[in-house]
Simulated assay, not measured.
Amino acid sequence: MRNIVYIIIVLFSTSFYAQNQSLFEQGNKLYNQGKYAEAIDKYKAILATKKHSEALYFNLANAHYKLNNIAPSIYYYEKALQLAPDDKDIKNNLAFAKNMTIDAIDTVPDAGFSKLVKNITNIMSFDNWAKVAVASVILFVLLFLVYYFTYSTFKKRLAFVTSNLFLFSAAISVIIAFHKYNVYKNDNEAIVFAQESTVKNEPNKRSDEVFRLHEGTKVKILDTISNWKKIKLADGKIGWIENEDIKEL
């Protein structure tokens, strides 16, 4: 009975994949024909099945960019970049899309120790930092065994020093991996989808306006109260925006 269920699941998954692959190819064909709206429908049909990839988001963003849909193009480029953070094509196209936005927001640069930590942390993803930690622990154990069983004084010293270096590397890598993961988990960002949105100093419509944002601008979400989101801009400005005006990444 289990074998029959397994076969059914495999066949269903294969059929599902084939259907999505067909939709993806149809979308690409429509895109190449200049039928961008129709291509978007095909790509979104794949997303409706809860399947996604950087290629799907990238093509979806490209189609929106061709139609001058500022917010959706930036949103899907950002989604693609989450899955492929080192992809140069995604970064370049995202830069072009951002040139269409109205809001000119200066980024507050990191300085001193904060900048150093950020630069080191961003060398790799938290998965890769975790892999470095595991590899370092394995090498530490192997070198410690060499130190324990060898009789040569020189080899003992070399194994002892090297093993401790790998132990230190493992500890640092674990710390960085956890820090990178926490930054990633707490880095809740969104894209403004409203053509123009009024940002308030409190989460209600009667409060004073602090500034305005336009479609395509990226914000960081700090808090949520009812149908309002507390946001922060790259230049440090903070305010409250209505949920319906933004789309979370």
Rank of each mutant, 00 (worst) to 15 (best):
A133H: 00
L158M: 07
Y65T: 02
N99Q: 13
F166G: 00
F126W: 12
I123R: 00
L67D: 02
L165F: 12
F149M: 08
K91E: 11
A97K: 09
I138V: 15
N93F: 06
F140C: 08
A61F: 10
K66A: 14
K79V: 06
T121H: 00
D106L: 09
R157G: 08
A63K: 02
I90F: 07
A135D: 04
F154K: 07
K155L: 14
D127T: 12
D86C: 03
A80V: 05
Y75A: 07
V141P: 02
Y75S: 06
K156G: 07
A133L: 01
A80M: 08
F166Q: 01
T162N: 03
L142N: 05
V132W: 00
Y151H: 12
T121M: 05
N68G: 06
Y65H: 14
V161G: 04
I90N: 04
E78K: 14
A84Q: 07
N62G: 13
L145G: 06
L83V: 09
L142I: 15
K91V: 06
T162S: 13
A95F: 10
A63F: 01
N128W: 10
A63G: 03
Y147E: 12
S163W: 01
L143G: 06
I90E: 02
V161Y: 14
K98M: 15
D103C: 08
A80N: 06
F113I: 14
L60I: 03
N68P: 03
N69M: 07
R157L: 12
F154S: 07
N122S: 14
L145R: 06
Y75F: 15
F149Q: 10
V117L: 07
N93V: 05
I70P: 01
K118V: 11
I102L: 13
N69R: 06
T150M: 03
A95H: 09
L67H: 02
D87Y: 08
F160E: 08
G112C: 07
N128G: 04
F140N: 08
I120M: 03
T107W: 03
I138D: 01
K118P: 05
S163D: 01
Q82P: 03
Y75M: 11
L83A: 12
S163P: 03
W129L: 00
G112E: 05
F149A: 07
L167M: 13
L81C: 05
S125L: 05
I138G: 02
S152I: 06
D89K: 11
M124Y: 15
Y75Q: 11
V137C: 08
A135E: 03
Y147S: 04
F168L: 14
A84W: 04
K131W: 13
F144R: 10
W129I: 00
I138A: 14
N93Y: 05
A84P: 06
K118A: 14
Q82H: 09
Y151I: 07
D110S: 09
T162H: 02
A104I: 14
N69H: 10
N93W: 05
T162M: 05
N122Q: 12
K155V: 08
L81W: 04
H64G: 02
V134T: 06
D87Q: 11
Y148N: 11
A80C: 08
F96V: 09
N68R: 11
